[in-house]
Amino acid sequence: MTKADLIENVYLKTGYSKKESAEIVETVFDLIKDTLEDGEKIKIAGFGNFVVKEKSTRRGRNPQTGEEIEITARKILTFKPSQVLKSAINSDS
């Protein structure tokens, strides 16, 4: 599934034109991305949480050369699926 399929679903559900549906879907993801960029988490009940985590500096190794390198501190985005989503995925099989 791609963004085009999401737009199609919004179009079918709402009756907005495909162009409007595309703009609306784009706006939703822009709002989410702007919020995460500010370091704020997104909590979608029944789906999961997107959380920005701060990673401190650590030592790593280039697996190819074995050379020790410093991995710099950084912020990463993590997704924690809700119990509802996890159960739904497992009940399918």
Binding site: N9, T14, A88
Partner: peptide, 17 residues
């Protein structure tokens, strides 16, 4: 309705594999 449709669609796709 739109926000629900987006996340329900993603969830349904994942449940469907």
């Amino acid at each position: 309705l739109i926000v629900n449709t987006i996340f329900d669609s993603i969830g349904d796709a994942l449940v469907g594999g």
